[in-house]
Amino acid sequence: MLLLLQYTLIFSSVLTLVALGGCYSEHSGVINLGLEGIMVIGALGGALVMRFIPASTPGIFVVLLTLLGAVAFGVAYAALLAVACINYKADQTIVGTALNILGTALATVLVKAINMKLSGGDDVSSTVQYVSAKQNFVAYIGSFQFNWFMVIAIIALVVAYVVLYKTRFGLRMMACGEHPQAAASVGISVYKMRWSGVLISGVFGSIGGIAYILAGVSEWKFENGVAGFGFLALAVMIFGQWKPTKIALAALLFGLFRALSNVYIGIDFLANLNIPSTVYNMFPYIISLLVLALTSKNSKAPKAEGIPYDPGQR
């Protein structure tokens, strides 16, 4: 049971982080379907830091540098979305999808190249290992494995709430997602606000990415990307009605179902049901479909999301 709690919390943290990232972007008026790709690239940045950092580095630096590596990669990657969708008015769905496919392909090509070079051609896998570096992210309380990303998620949640609802910046950004022309008429730069929204989503998406590959495993095969987790986060965001507090609650629910697929064997009641493991793997996706079907009717989505900003329009 403790294991279930542990996995629920860590997966919820990941979902919260990524969904909050999507939340910033969508409130500024840009649909970020590329979150999945941002997660992969962010995870790649962090994993490479962990892989190459000297073992003697103090733990706190390992954590900080890993986060920094992830964020640097993720923000740079998110900029690809921003430049296409904001400045060149590209279709946000196409570009987001392209970034998802590109993320996995790029990470695979790079990791394979690095592995081949380091092993002299013997290792052609797309797997990065970070067994020792991972220890810096976890602490044990009894048998409960506490993960620092749980704290980071809570901080991100509080920050998101304050920024979006209590600061001038956040309120202005949300205005750009509701009615950009009206926002522009009072002197707000819609382009700047949308760029900020997308780049912030890059920050949270990439932290979520590195958190995801650190949840429970100590190596990652980049060929698999992040298995649709970015899209689960988008479902969490929609279920959470684009509001930080509700997003956190939605993330807990989805995190629980995701955790079940990892730990159901350890729970006698579930193990006795004899359901094949694939069914548990499908759970989060089925649940999110059901939840979306029930909650999307009265969508509270930002009104101008997905529409490129055209100053001449009213």
């Binding site: 296409a84 590209a90 392209a98 970034l99 081949m116 060929e223």
Partner: peptide
């Protein structure tokens, strides 16, 4: 295969989709 991986073609087609976003422009 000693230097590169075959996924390089996935990479190229992903870049092409990204660039297709700019077709309107």
């Amino acid at each position: 295969k000693n230097l590169y991986s075959s996924q390089i073609s996935d990479l190229i087609s992903a870049i092409i989709i990204y660039l297709c976003g700019f077709v309107g422009f």
